[in-house]
């Protein structure tokens, strides 16, 4: 695996370039916002001098490139700045919320696999029959339903009406179920479709026919022969999910009062708290880059025909 080391280095280099590009684009977008952070912090009763004083202390009076370079140089030292509204270090805010988001992602990945894989296998086995059609329609609904609606619906039915789960919040395993399910339904839909087609491919292979000819039972063929091959391409996709979830957590965390970085981002956007928006964007970008990287590195292990270049 001599090639792997070179490959990883190349990818890290690319990732750094991507991250710098992201800081630049985000910075430009936030710079162009018609909101004046200094005035926002100062409040409406502040005198013009107070606003100007705040602007200077935050370096907002500097030209764009100078502000950007200042941001980059502190970023290199691991300093994401201080929140305008919450008056706390952004790093501290993000670190305090990261565990919740990671837990939610782990829960969501479990949910989507638990839903998607069995459904996909069943659909493949019952191809063309009622179960197949029903699963494919449901998966279509799962993929297309807005998560805000799904979240509120699950909350209303299972927490408010039936009282099986707490109405939002964080802390116990029971708190995790509904938000993880909301996120997992989307992925579950995708996975059932992928699993179905992957399974169908494998079931058409010669070795399956051989196994059948040798008299292996349906169950044995599915679990021992087919599943092990069919599931490999799916595993490689999990890395990509991490990126997809980054947008989902903003909505789901807000609906369920889940104290993760998605909720932090949503609050910051509403209050134009620029340092937090920058920080969360960077962290989200990191997630996506790392997720894609993992997906690429895992791929050749599960399918030796894929080569890293």
């Amino acid at each position: 695996m001599k090639g792997l080391g070179v490959y990883v280095l190349k990818r890290i280099g690319q990732a750094l370039l991507i991250m710098i590009g992201i800081t630049l684009i985000t910075f430009i977008l936030l710079y162009l916002l018609p909101a004046d952070p200094a005035r926002q912090i100062a409040g409406r009763s502040a005198t013009a001098e107070t606003v100007e004083n705040i602007r200077r202390q935050l370096g907002l009076h500097l030209p764009f490139y100078e502000q950007y370079l200042r941001y980059l140089s502190s970023l290199v030292q691991g300093d994401l700045g201080r929140s305008y509204i919450q008056k706390t270090e952004v790093t501290e805010l993000i670190l305090s919320r990261l565990p919740a988001t990671l837990l939610l992602m782990a829960g969501a990945i479990s949910c989507e696999l638990l839903i998607g894989l069995p459904a996909g296998i069943l659909a493949a086995v019952k191809r063309g029959k009622f179960a197949d059609n029903a699963i494919m329609i449901l998966s279509f609904v799962g993929v297309s339903a807005p998560q805000f609606v799904v979240g509120i619906l699950l909350l209303y039915v299972f927490a408010v009406q039936f009282g099986w789960f707490p109405i939002g919040g964080y802390g116990t395993a029971a708190h995790l179920v509904l938000p993880a399910l909301t996120l997992g339904l989307l992925g579950g839909g995708w996975y059932s479709r992928m699993m179905r087609s992957s399974m169908l491919d494998v079931l058409r292979q010669d070795y399956i026919r051989t196994a059948r000819a040798k008299g292996a039972g349906q169950m044995r063929i599915l679990t021992v022969h087919a599943l092990r091959n069919a599931i490999l391409p799916i595993i490689a996709m999990i890395g990509l999910d991490v990126g997809i979830f980054m947008s989902g957590v903003v909505v789901v965390e807000s609906v369920f009062g889940w104290p993760g970085i998605g909720q932090l981002a949503w609050q910051a956007i509403q209050r134009v708290d620029i340092p937090i928006i920058m920080g969360v964007t960077l962290v989200a970008a990191c997630f996506i880059v790392v997720g894609n990287f993992l997906a690429d590195v895992i791929a050749p292990f599960v399918d030796p025909r894929i080569e890293l270049k």
């Binding site: 909350l155 009282g163 939002g168 609906v255 369920f256 009062g257 609050q267």
Partner: peptide, 18 residues
């Protein structure tokens, strides 16, 4: 003071006495 609560969800919780 519980924060991060959507007003709609907070209303449901109040109606449940939470």
């Amino acid at each position: 003071f519980e924060v991060g609560q959507e007003p709609l969800v907070a209303l449901l919780r109040l109606q449940r006495g939470e």
